[in-house]
Amino acid sequence: MTLLDMKPGEQAIVKKIRGRGPLKRRFMDMGIVEGTKLHFIKVAPLGDPLQISVKSYELSIRKEDAANIEVEM
């Protein structure tokens, strides 16, 4: 499953980040690496992007990008 399959309020562990190159590097630079605990906080009022929390700080990620984050509940 990916981040998109989670519901607001749920927590999961990052399993894998798909692809390579800028998008993946950016995720990893921001601390979203394999084994990181990830907390899906909410969806923006207009339905996109998403707000998640990793390593005690918060991030806004667009849905199309979030589809590349595989997680495990």
């Binding site: 190159g21 800028p22 998008l23 950016r26 995720f27 921001m30 992007p49 707000q51 700080y57 918060e58 991030l59 806004s60 990620i61 667009r62 990008d65």
Partner: peptide, 12 residues
């Protein structure tokens, strides 16, 4: 522009 995606910190 840059190929970097829009991943933005929501600061405290």
């Amino acid at each position: 522009g840059d190929p970097a995606p829009f991943i933005m910190e929501l600061p405290e």
